[in-house]
Each structure stands twice: as C-alpha cells, then as structure tokens.
Simulated scan of single mutants.
Amino acid sequence: MPESTSTTQSSPSPTAIFTPAHLKFINAKLEKLSAEKIIEWAMLTLPGLIQTTAFGPTGLVILDMINRIHIDQQAAANAHPTPASSSASEDDEDLDDSQTKFKKSGYNTRRHPVPLVFIDTLYHFQETLDLAQRVQDHYNIPLKVYKPQNCETTEDFERLYGKQLWETDEVSYDYLVKVEPGRRSYQELGAQAVISGRRRSQKGDRSHLNILEVEAGTGLLKLNPLATWSFQQVWTYLRAHQVPFNVLLDQGYRSIGDWHSTKPASNPDDERSGRWEGKQKSECGLHVDYFKMRAEFQATQKKKQALLAAQQQAVLEAQQQQVVQVA
C-alpha cells in the first residue's frame, strides 16, 4: 500500500481545459472510434491519466487494452529506436531479461503506463481481493491501494465509526470508504484525468453517458472508453483474451461492489439490479457531485457531534443533580 497523506487536499488544477463546444466536438469524434483507439488517444493526449477500478468486468477489459496498447508501443519503439528511447534509463535495467520475459509471456514486464488505483473499502468480497492479486501477477503491474483514512482493517474502521455504518449513515459510509480515499489518490498521484468502467447499458444515471466528461467544480476529466459497449461485448472480450475475472460472475453477479450491498442480478436486462436492493440509489458516491457529497457528509458529522455534546451535557447535569440530592 502506498504512503498516504493524513489530510485530504484539493486535486491539482487541470492543465487541459475544454469548453462545452470543444467537449461536444471531441465526443462526436470519439463516438466513431473503437474502445482501443479511444484509450490510445487518451494515453497520448490527456495529462495526469490514471485508471480507478474495483476489478469489475469493464475495468478489466480496459486494463487489458491499456496493456496491449503499451506492448504495441514498446514493440514499435524497439523496432525503430530513437536516441531518446535507446538511451540508458532506470526503465532499461535488466533489459535483456525483460525482453525475454516479454516475448515468452506476451505481456510487458516494464513499467505500466497508466497508474492503476484500487479503492479498498474494507468490505469487498474475498473473491474481489483474490482477483486483485491475480491481476497484479498476470500483468506484472503495481496496484496503488487506497483505504479509508487511518484504517488498515475492518476492525479499525468499525472501532472509529461503529458497525454497519452503511445502514445507519449511508452518506458518511460512502464518503469515508470511497469518496475520500478516491480524492486522496487523485491528489497524491497528480491525477487530472480518470478512466472509469461506466457504460450506458448499465442504465440509471449512466444511460446518457458521454465518453469524455468534465467534472463540475473540479475540472477533473473522466473518460468512459467503453460507454457504448453492452455487457455481452464485455463478457466476450474477457473470454476471447483470457482476462482474469471475478469468479462471482459465474454465480450470477454482474456488478460487484461491497459484500453487504451486492447480490446476483435480479433482472437479466439490468446488470446493476443486484446493487443496493430496495434502495433508491444507483451510484456509490465516486460518480456523483463531489462538493454536494462532501457538504452532506460534513453536515451529518456536525449533527452527530451536536447530538453527542447534548447527550454528554445531559449526563453531566444528571450527575450534578444526584450530588445535590445526596447533599
């Protein structure tokens, strides 16, 4: 796990700024490209690009595509080296050994071009955690893991915030386990553009998703390269390219989040129907208005503090009353 700052800071100011007209023009162009070409364009164009994933099917497809694009780029560079690319560097250590492994495995063993971020909520299925390790081994990629602040284990989190916080205070839960760690990762990694696995076929708030978005208020760029794909297309790719995937997919799960709010899809036409069953909710907080989410969290915390102070005051007054009565 990477070293993390103890306080959440604002994300760096974006260096790529798009007007609404420019963004509309870019999206019209991106709509005509394949997912691979969209990702390749982003890798060459967008500053501070990272990928966040919970190792869902779409995120795994994107990771595999990034890896294959990188392999092709490295192969082209090796076939036509330039003075810059052929000069000695930290990446070129043990080059002969790396090239041998590269040829044998089909995967590039050198530095992955897009930092991969995993938000560990501490409530993931064990199958998801096992998959995270398999992915690291398969692609030889370092995983940047972010957890709730000052927490390494579920016990740490529940000692600070109580058990089943998702039932008693859903806003605080989402903010603490997903939003705050996510924003911390953006800050520490200098992220200005984030690749996500959202698709229109997932319905709900995602039905009218653009391929490239600008987050209101922060200017953060969000790229959804598989926005136009169906679940079947994702599934076909996983199988065809032998991409590691979550074994829960074979048990009827389609969208996999925390164990306490995820079930197998109840509606075969709605892959996210197994998430937050019985609740009017379709997003976890990572893809909603950040400032609104933070304001709601802060307001909730103030109410809790005020209630706790009132309770402590009531106890103190009761103790003082008992002293008076005894006297």
Rank of each mutant, 00 (worst) to 15 (best):
S172F: 04
Q192G: 06
E180K: 15
G162V: 00
Y146G: 07
A191R: 06
E188C: 09
G190K: 11
F157C: 08
E155S: 06
E158T: 13
R159T: 15
D174Q: 08
L160G: 07
T168N: 09
L160Q: 15
T153M: 10
G162T: 02
E152F: 09
Q149W: 09
R184P: 03
D174H: 01
L160N: 11
C151N: 11
P148I: 05
G190R: 08
P148C: 07
Q187D: 00
E155Y: 03
R184K: 15
W166I: 01
K163P: 00
R183M: 15
Q192C: 05
V145E: 11
T168F: 09
E155V: 10
L176S: 02
A193S: 15
T154R: 15
Q164W: 03
E188H: 06
D156Y: 10
V179C: 04
E170H: 01
Q164C: 03
S185D: 12
Q192V: 06
L165A: 06
G162H: 06
L160S: 12
Q164E: 15
L176G: 00
A191Y: 05
E167I: 05
G182E: 07
V145Q: 09
R183P: 00
G190D: 10
R184S: 13
V145G: 06
T153V: 02
V171G: 02
K163A: 11
G190M: 07
Y186P: 00
D169T: 08
D169P: 00
R184W: 01
G162Y: 04
Y146P: 05
P181M: 09
P148A: 12
T154L: 06
R183W: 13
D169E: 14
G182F: 10
E158G: 06
E188V: 05
G190I: 02
D174W: 00
D169Q: 10
L176W: 01
E167M: 09
F157G: 02
D169F: 04
Q192M: 07
P148W: 02
Q192K: 05
D156G: 10
